[in-house]
Amino acid sequence: MEFFEVVKNRYACKKFDGRPVAKEHLDAILEAGRLAPTAKNLQEQRIYVVQSEEGLAKIDKVTPCRYGAATVVVVAFDTTNVFTYPGEKRDSGVEDATIVATHMMLATKAEGVDSCWINFFDPEVAAKELGLPENEEVLMILDLGYPVEGTTPLAMHTQRKELSETVTYM
């Protein structure tokens, strides 16, 4: 699928049919995340693929938003391996993990799979429930799968502000 078609057609699927994502598609999605740029190439992202019944039950304990997906990707980052920006008020952890997650989300659509970016959870609770190391912070959960037949984007999906409302030339 052409890039702008991917961007235009990607939506937050909220009703998956429960089939796990095919290995070849999942491998391509994970590879897209691996190729994402990170500050100073630190690659602090940590990706957890959850497909087991036990793992999915843990996801269900931390969020009601799995929507029937049989494959879930948790994107975290190593807080001890980040680049601190000038001024020392921000670091690259959230930014880099977001770039990785976005690459995977777009690759998902390109692979003919749907996704939903989930941030309705407490990151500390999720990390503890999943048994992640203390130095890792969970950024988001990405539901992956195939939509139930007839599932469509939410009604407001195609409504976008004009560029003149969001872009300022200086």
Score class of each variant (00 low, 15 high):
residue 103 H to G: 05
residue 92 S to F: 08
residue 118 I to P: 00
residue 113 V to D: 00
residue 126 A to S: 09
residue 102 T to W: 12
residue 100 V to E: 02
residue 90 R to G: 10
residue 110 A to F: 03
residue 108 T to G: 12
residue 99 I to C: 07
residue 129 E to F: 02
residue 93 G to E: 11
residue 109 K to P: 00
residue 115 S to E: 04
residue 126 A to Q: 00
residue 84 T to V: 14
residue 86 P to Q: 10
residue 87 G to K: 06
residue 85 Y to Q: 12
residue 102 T to D: 05
residue 80 T to Q: 09
residue 92 S to A: 13
residue 71 T to C: 13
residue 96 D to K: 14
residue 70 A to F: 15
residue 82 V to F: 09
residue 112 G to Y: 05
residue 88 E to D: 12
residue 71 T to H: 03
residue 103 H to R: 13
residue 124 E to T: 08
residue 87 G to D: 02
residue 114 D to N: 15
residue 86 P to M: 06
residue 94 V to E: 02
residue 104 M to C: 07
residue 73 V to H: 00
residue 105 M to K: 03
residue 74 V to H: 00
residue 127 A to G: 07
residue 82 V to H: 00
residue 91 D to C: 14
residue 69 A to F: 02
residue 91 D to Q: 09
residue 63 T to Y: 02
residue 71 T to E: 04
residue 100 V to A: 13
residue 107 A to K: 03
residue 76 A to C: 03
residue 71 T to P: 13
residue 96 D to A: 15
residue 112 G to D: 07
residue 105 M to C: 08
residue 104 M to N: 08
residue 97 A to S: 10
residue 94 V to D: 03
residue 78 D to Y: 08
residue 75 V to I: 04
residue 97 A to M: 13
residue 96 D to H: 10
residue 125 V to G: 06
residue 82 V to K: 00
residue 67 Y to L: 06
residue 123 P to V: 06
residue 103 H to T: 10
residue 114 D to E: 11
